[in-house]
Every structure is written in structure tokens, then in C-alpha cells.
């Protein structure tokens, strides 16, 4: 590799900063173990982005206890409700986190749990509605590792 000069170094460092500050243009494609879980859950049907709001810290203070809240838009009536929501973490040794099962008696398709994230990764939620339609949402959580809290 050719050595770079000081000016290039500043440009490179600055460029990297710009890159990390830019909002993610599109969701990363889910691969590996997480994709297998989704395949099983959806039966291979495509989930559409939307309806789910996923609340996670941008930076987790510790990966062992990361608060997660989610809400799925739905009237939650006997005719139209959210049946199940699968939550996956694509960078964990096992992608599975939890599967939440709602009923019209839930009133709202809303839940909060605390999860373990082994590293910086995407958390993916896939919702299955009573009519069989599928929705998805994902968020990246930065997990700080190292130092005394690590």
C-alpha cells in the first residue's frame, strides 16, 4: 500500500466522519441466521416496511441490558389485529430475541422488553397481521465495548 500524506490523512479522516454522520439511506438486507428465522416466520412471503415503530437507544450504554419498545399500528379489533411480532438481532450468536403474541384483548399492539446485544448490529422486527399481511422495521444499535463498563 502506498503511504499517504498528511493532507490526505485529514481528508480520509474527515470523509469517514461524514460517512458515519450520514443517515442510513436504506435498511441493510437481513442475512445469515436472522434471515432463516424470518423465512420460517413469514413462510417466504415478503414483509413490507412500515406500521411498526421500533424504539431503541442509538448507543447502548451496555449491551447486556438494552431497552426495546415497539408499537404496531392496528385497530386491534376481532376483525383486524396484530397476531405476532418477531424480534431478531442479526449480530448475536443466535438471532432470535422474542416473539410477541397479541390478541384483540391486548387493546394495543405495544410492548417493552430488555434485550442483550453482543455487538453493534441491526435489530429487526417483523409483524404478522390477522389478515396475513407482513410488515417490518429495523434499527441499528451501537454497542460500546471496552473500558470498565465493557
Amino acid at each position: 500500500m502506498k503511504a499517504i500524506n498528511r493532507r490526505q490523512a485529514f481528508a480520509l479522516g474527515g470523509g469517514f466522519v461524514m460517512l458515519t454522520l450520514m443517515p442510513m439511506a436504506a435498511d441493510a438486507e437481513v442475512t445469515g441466521d436472522a434471515a432463516k428465522w424470518i423465512e420460517k416466520f413469514t413462510g417466504g412471503k415478503q414483509a413490507v416496511k412500515g406500521k411498526i415503530s421500533l424504539d431503541l437507544p442509538e448507543i447502548a450504554e451496555n449491551g447486556n441490558t438494552v431497552p426495546l419498545s415497539l408499537t404496531v399500528e392496528s385497530p386491534m379489533t376481532a376483525d383486524s389485529y396484530v397476531k405476532e411480532v418477531m424480534i431478531l438481532a442479526d449480530g448475536n450468536p443466535n438471532a432470535g430475541v422474542a416473539t410477541l403474541m397479541f390478541t384483540p384483548l391486548s387493546g394495543k399492539a405495544e410492548a417493552s422488553i430488555r434485550i442483550r446485544l453482543a455487538t453493534t448490529q441491526n435489530v429487526v422486527a417483523v409483524a404478522k397481521m390477522s389478515d396475513g399481511s407482513l410488515f417490518t422495521e429495523q434499527k441499528t444499535v451501537k454497542v460500546t465495548i471496552g473500558g470498565c463498563g465493557g
Binding site: 438481532a89 410477541l100 403474541m101 391486548s106 405495544e110 410492548a111 422488553i113 430488555r114
Partner: peptide, 27 residues
């Protein structure tokens, strides 16, 4: 469950933190 009818349930994996906290709603 409420009066014998299911309200909310979940299947949990090892990625759930110790001392599991679960919050949900009921009509």
C-alpha cells in the same frame, strides 16, 4: 390471560436480559 382468555404472550430466547421485564397492554 384475563378471565381465562389470552391477552398477551411471548416466546423468549437467550437474548433477553436477566430479570426479564415485560410491559404490554390490555383492554
Amino acid at each position: 390471560e384475563f378471565n381465562g382468555k389470552p391477552v398477551f404472550s411471548c416466546v423468549l430466547e437467550p437474548a433477553i436480559s436477566a430479570n426479564p421485564y415485560i410491559q404490554f397492554d390490555a383492554r
